[in-house]
Every structure is written in C-alpha cells, then in structure tokens.
Amino acid sequence: MGQEKKNTFLIVSGDKVRVQKCTDILNRNFPNCSIFHSAEWFETKYKLDNVHPKAILVDEYLPKGSGFDVVTKVLKERNNNDISIIIMSYVSDHDAFTKEVASGRVQFLNEPDRESALVECVSKIVSPHKVETQVQYQIKQLEPGAILFAEGEKTELTYIVKKGSLRAYCASPEGDKITLGEIVAGEFVGEMGHFNHEPRSATVEAITDVELIAIPNSAVDNVIFTRPSWAKALVKTLSTRLKKANKALAG
C-alpha cells in the first residue's frame, strides 16, 4: 500500500538549477515524493525500467539531444503506458504528440520556472479527481451596456466573442473614459491576462447583445491545442491588436 501512495517522478534535464528547483517544488507541494533525474536517453531508460515513475518531466533541450526524442521513445514502449509526461518548453509545439496531448497523457509546461504552473500540471496527474473533467468552457451572454470585466479586476477567464461587439476602455486620471478599441465576433478578449498573469488593464463593455465562450485560464492552452480554429482566432486577434498599436504609435 505504501508503494501505491508514493509519488515518484523522473526529471530529465541537463540544467542542474532547473532540476533542483523542480525537485524543491515537487517536495514542497506533493506528499511522499521520490525524485530521480537523468540527462540523456540511456540513463532515462534505466530509471524508467527500475523505478517506473508516475510522471517524467522532460526539458525540450538536453545536453546530448532533443527532449522530444526522449518523449517519442518513452511513448513507443508499452510498459510505459501508465507514465504521464510533462514537456518543459517555453513554446508548445502544436504538431507534436497531438493524440497524447488531447488525451491528457502529455502536457506542455510553458513556464517551467513558475511554481504554480508546475504544480498545476502535476496536480492533473497526482490528483486527477480534482481537475475539471467536464467541458472546460461555458457560454456567457451580455446585454448592451453590460460590463464583461472591469479594469483592475483579477484575471481568471479568457473569452472568445461568438456574436456581437464590445468596446474596451480605461479611465483617465480625470475620470474620463478613453476608448481603446472594439472587439467583434471571432476575436479573443481578456487573453493578455492569461499570458501576463496581471489584473485587467481595461474595462470591457457590451455594445450590442453579445454571446461569448468563457475559458478558465488554467484550461486555455489545452483547449486551444485541441481546437485549431481557436488557435487561429487567437493569432488573428493578437495580430490585429499589434497593427492597431503600431498605427497609433505612428500617429
């Protein structure tokens, strides 16, 4: 019974600082941990065969090759079918391990140095019953003049506009409303809070009747990964905002 309760992890990385930091975070947040580490495939295979971890955390770049190659080899071996994989990469490769990411067996950790991000990924493995298993988004409707969120509020959700339009504005020192732009159907709104983890930088108000899809920030990466059309919508939104910002700066 004691063996079943043990949380065994294997960290595959050539970065000693990262290995130590991940080790500290795991020990601090999860009970009864046994943590091993390796830096290349042959050592990784030896550890997999002998300690059979619950999960492995793999750096994208290793001293003697690619972390993606290590992940591919792990996935090919049937006796590793119950091992979950976390790839520590600053950018998710949406063309890699599509089926395994969709099933939840493989996760991309884009902020490996942020404790809460690492804990969130590992919690889905160690305590899966605590993770949202139903549809991770919901429909929200607004009438004209309704506030979606206010400047300074805590960021918890990202939205996609299905129907209608909204406007974003912030308050001037004198208390006037400074309009920043209009958000229309097909665009994201509130997405920057997911990326910078900061309070809302503007207030967003419905101009017309609006229907939105609300996505918890903790689920944004996985939802976008499994819905390519949403990923394209996000890129389009960011591109449009950048063009508007450049135009404003140019006068």
Rank of each mutant, 00 (worst) to 15 (best):
R78E: 15
R114W: 05
D69C: 05
R78S: 13
E115H: 02
D113A: 02
D82Q: 08
R78C: 09
S84L: 03
D69R: 05
V74A: 06
E111V: 04
F108Y: 12
S116K: 07
S103T: 12
S84R: 04
T98V: 15
R114Q: 10
Y90L: 06
D69Q: 04
N80S: 04
G104S: 10
G104W: 09
D69H: 10
T98G: 10
A96E: 09
V91N: 06
H94F: 15
Y90S: 05
E111R: 07
S103Y: 09
K76W: 04
V71K: 02
F108S: 00
I83V: 12
I86R: 07
I85W: 00
I83L: 04
K76S: 12
L109T: 03
S92G: 14
R105W: 01
F108D: 02
A102M: 15
I87Q: 03
R78F: 12
H94Y: 14
L118Y: 01
L75W: 02
A102D: 14
N80F: 06
V101T: 13
V74W: 05
M88I: 02
L109G: 05
S84Y: 11
I85G: 01
D82Y: 10
F68E: 03
S84A: 12
N80D: 03
T98C: 14
D82P: 02
V106K: 00
P112N: 01
